[in-house]
Design a binder for these strands. Structure first.
Lengths: 140, 140
DNA sequence: CTGACTGCAAACGTTTTGCACGGTA
DNA sequence: TACCGTGCAAAACGTTTGCAGTCAG
């Protein structure tokens, strides 16, 4: 568990319990939708308002603390900002797993975009399929 | 322009004017949101209902005629199904450009996922940045 | 102490639904 | 002709907003 209070203050945000709980919930689960963040945090903080979750997610994305992960046909999930990586999205259970980004791919993408005179800012690679866990579940 | 009527019938859908206009509009623009499809098609087909666009987009995605392209912080766009490719998404003008998918990247992604025992079904690579057109506009 | 933040409730825009009518095959 | 598809209007849903009260710094 990281020092969320410092992280927030460095981003110009007050370290409220709501925000720290939201960050902790996201870090524990890796990737979460707004609904599931609310459901999780409200358990330990029953007065929490869904509007507060919305406001804070938007704010923390703006401040660069969180990153939105759009997912085909579903509501977006949110994760803590970290190094570039690949998302393995399971179409069965909906779980998202991170994989380290490969140097070769990174180089290729930079080459491709510079050939296009495209000023690359952010890369987003989502691979959809069935995770090993769900494959086993189907086999049984 | 392709033969949309055949495409639709092969997918088990009736070839209505609404559907063919929607497909034509998407093919002409490459990538479109539901709103812009409606705005475009309603010009030549004033009785068109927005609900019809929604119903048909959902249906055609299910049938594999269209593909949803989720975009960070925006409403999704839709494109005709085609070979795997990369999306260059301009953060200034919102335009999405297709780039052919590179063989090397493709191989790397397959290797990566098979190492994970992840059954890869669909890949989605979105690169966000500023397109050459918008860079020129800023420079002036 | 003061501005930033929260929770509530209302407002808003988008998407979905049910149904009667119309068009395709 | 039969059934699928459309258009309309209403309903449902997710998200945003304004405001009064509260809290972190």
């Amino acid at each position: 568990m990281r020092d969320y209070a410092t992280l927030l203050k460095e981003s110009g945000l007050k370290a409220t319990f709501q925000r720290m709980n939201i960050l902790e919930s996201i870090e524990n689960h890796g990737h979460m939708s707004i609904d599931s963040i609310y459901e999780e945090v409200v358990k330990t903080h029953p007065s929490l308002s869904l509007a507060t979750v919305y406001k804070n997610i938007i704010l923390m994305v703006e401040k660069g603390v969180l990153v939105e992960v759009p997912i085909t046909g579903k509501k977006p999930k949110y994760e803590l900002i970290k190094e570039d990586h690949i998302h393995l999205v399971c179409t069965e259970c909906g779980e998202v797993e991170d994989k380290p980004h490969m140097q070769e791919t990174d180089t290729l993408l930079h080459t491709l975009t510079s050939n296009e005179h495209f000023k690359l800012q952010k890369q987003q690679i989502n691979l959809y399929g069935v995770c090993s866990h769900c494959q086993e579940a189907v086999a049984s």
